[in-house]
Amino acid sequence: MPVRVHLSSNLRGPTGGVAEVEAEGATVGALIDDLDRRYPGLGDALRSGVSVVINDLLIAHPDYEPVADGARIYFVPQTAGG
C-alpha cells in the first residue's frame, strides 16, 4: 500500500517542486529507496541530514522505522542545538 510522503520545500528539487508524493516501503529506508527510483536523486537528499515525522513523532535516524498503512510521512531537515 503506498503511503503519502511530504517533503519539506528544500527537498523538492528532484520532484520538480511537488510537495507530496506517494511511495511504498515497509520501512522508511525502503521508502527512500522507492522514492529514489521514482525521483532520481531524491534518495541522496533524504539519506543525509534528514529526519522524519511519523504520527507526530520526530525521528532523527529513521532508516529502519516501520511504516504502517495509512501513515503520513514528513521528511524534514535535521536540527542541531546548543
Binding site: 520545500s9 514528513y74 524534514v76
Partner: peptide, 9 residues
C-alpha cells in the same frame, strides 16, 4: 503546519 510541512503535535 510547520515551515517544514509537518503538523505540530
Amino acid at each position: 503546519p510547520s515551515t517544514m510541512g509537518f503538523p505540530f503535535a
